[in-house]
Amino acid sequence: MTNKSIYLTMALLVLIATILSIVYGAVEISISEMSSALNKWINNPENLNLNERIFLEIRLPRAILTLIVGSSLAVGGVLMQGLFLNPIVEPGLIGTSSGAAFGAALYFTLGAVLDFNAGEWTLPIAACLGGMLATFIVFFLSESSSRNKTSTISLLLIGIAVNALFLSGIGFLSYIARDPQARSITFWNLGTLSGANWHSVVIVGLTCVSCVLLGLKYAKQLNALMLGELEAGNLGISIRSLKLKVLFVNVLLVSVATAFTGVIGFVGLVVPHVLRLLKGSDTRYLILGSVFMGALLLSIADILARLLLAPAELPIGIVTTVVGAPIFIYLLRKNEYYF
């Protein structure tokens, strides 16, 4: 199978999953309602009936946000695995997600006290700052601990420590939080796409597109890094600057996505794995493939999250983990994969 046919197949599946996720929900929306809503939206945005409004204001932005967040997390996974030369790394591993979650928890419990308010942007900003803070703490600690040489191992170990620190911070905040606040922290930590609107689609979408383009720009260098830091250096690559750039792209991708949806695990881990098993590890292919497969996986997860306990909705992070973990274990056991 060529790369193009893989992308095409996945694009088709993404389209099907998207339509299904729009159709099914508390109310079913037919294809004819969708097309009439789109028609009215373009020509005359008044006179929308209830189903058409649900489609335009809830289902459609949610479906699109799901695709973008899925792509973002998967591409983040590719970048991190490539940077750390380790197939079990995901964006959460170097503090990005737990930092973002900490930022969000801080907002939920102490937002009113700290008197920091940026309207509907407050939560995303808090999460984004948290994610960046954690990631850069990890990076600079590991930099200074190994004398100007970013050793992958120390980066990873410090990531684990910082992660634990931020997680206990979240634990503390939910301990002192009042009941409804604690519930929002929990819900946010498990991930949810129910807050989707056109604002979030635009912000996460723009971030995702620019980060994917940047990622593709670094694809060749990340390929060379697979030979190890030394050999990549011999091929003329400046390892330190590559690490900083790729880390920055990953922080942006993951914390912006996490800021709007909460913590969604496993997508960044499973997608690159599956792609590697399909057709090797060329970074360019992995990034483009992740854009499609990440979107597909999260779409399916979102459909399940809404259908399994309908009319109630499961946190999507639970679904991705429940779906992702067995696939991951199955793939590792079944296929020849060398570590």
């Binding site: 030369l85 380790n86 390929n223 030979l227 190890g228 050999e231 060398y338």
Partner: peptide, 14 residues
């Protein structure tokens, strides 16, 4: 300038 090292350890399938 090219360098060939003693051992090159790779993790990912290429």
């Amino acid at each position: 300038r090219a360098v060939l090292s003693q051992n090159t350890h790779m993790v990912f399938p290429l």
